[in-house]
Design a protein around this nucleic acid. Sequence first.
DNA 1: AAGACCGTTCGACATTATCGAATGATTCTC
DNA 2: GAGAATCATTCGATAATGTCGAACGGTCTT
Lengths: 251, 251
Amino acid sequence: MIQSVDRAIRILGVLQGARRLSLSEVASRLELPPSTAHGILKTLQAHGMVVQDRDSNRYQLGPAVLKLGNVYLDTLELRSRAVTWSEELARRSGHAVRTGVLTFDEVVIIHHEPRPDGSRQMPEVGIVIPAHASALGKALLAFLPEQVDGLLAGDKLRSMTSETLIDPAVLRSQLTEIAREALATEREEAVLGEAGIAAPIFDASGMAVGAIGIVLPAADWPPAESTFTAVREAARNISRELGASRWPVSV
Amino acid sequence: MIQSVDRAIRILGVLQGARRLSLSEVASRLELPPSTAHGILKTLQAHGMVVQDRDSNRYQLGPAVLKLGNVYLDTLELRSRAVTWSEELARRSGHAVRTGVLTFDEVVIIHHEPRPDGSRQMPEVGIVIPAHASALGKALLAFLPEQVDGLLAGDKLRSMTSETLIDPAVLRSQLTEIAREALATEREEAVLGEAGIAAPIFDASGMAVGAIGIVLPAADWPPAESTFTAVREAARNISRELGASRWPVSV
DNA sequence: AAGACCGTTCGACATTATCGAATGATTCTC
DNA sequence: GAGAATCATTCGATAATGTCGAACGGTCTT
């Protein structure tokens, strides 16, 4: 682990959390001398990874990170496959569809298909959700035992709502159940009023590389049986296109 | 400039260009010993900035860059303002609307409003276009003389089509004209069959912070006079919301 | 008007990144 | 199927490089 590179990424991390920070704020949050932080910040700035406000001197993320994010999406075969089937799933279910991948203890949304009712909805690509508090995350974790160990070895499970699973034992037993069904559900565990259903997506090597699922109002629970089937089928279809031989793959 | 941080960002840069690279490919492109590149890559990997394919051992960008990109968009006041007015401009003009910012010699699209004909269109947020070959870029450059100097001090202007402006003198004179009108146009200079119209957006300090414009088929050129007016008004309205006292601001 | 704060620059120092060499795994070739 | 070649990775000695204290100049506050 290279110290200065590590520090540079940590700086991007605090700017991610706090939007706009002065040099001294960045330095104090990372417990670095201001001059050290300054050198790293200027290097990041030279590449457009951060920009400095002319008036306030404060730093924030720069356009270069957006460019990187966009290229990341383009490189993902999962995403291009998900686009087609998300559309179908949104039509069949009548709900918004999300596809996500796991990074450490979070799910990052890589595709979002709005509810097919024509209303204007915020695109959700790039947003992150704690894995243990989402259907997408649980669907992935159920087939990635190593990641579960990593997750539980870290900080306590963060509570998002009163329904969030924060007991490791409860989470583990639910994941076992999800692995059996290849279907994860979530009821107001991340956001009050929202529920979710998701299923895992596997690649040619049988690895769980993502999950696809729908978001629906908690009031609409339980949805029709056909909705569960539709989610499973979308996941199975994408997995097949990625070269997976079986679905679901056993843990 | 911190060498190792600089190298880390360069690595992200080559992965951005080439999607998926082995360690030795990364190393040779940057003229680094493989062991040096390896150390940096592992640090980036530890933060999810790059991921390594299990089977092929090749590296590619990771989900963390998408997360960063999304937060960048959220921090931009310009973007939130642009959303509302883009919608209006798309409706009035009947064309797709783009809002972009300048980084070095490129324009990065920070918002895209699809053509209001209901057809399915690829979102273009995050894509980059050479500044000298786009209406958005020229609208910005006309009000940022320093950036023009930087642009022309670098490599030769890259030709995208036969119409691309590659002569610095021609570009400079066109920019003078654009600064006078506060309106830039482009006809098949970036993509054959596409034309564009754009106007600069200023913030409270009078700096050109972005540009908004429309993309239309080259065959539809010239559009109605009202279309030009609509673009200028969108830019003026956003500038006003950002606190700009006048529009356009003199160079 | 004086003080406090902040971003920035500079340079001596030692920590830290670097890179060659060695290892082990995997793939290609014959 | 055996041998060769390529590749990612590890390790450690070396010195190059990042680090951080101190000082400067600017701006905002009291």
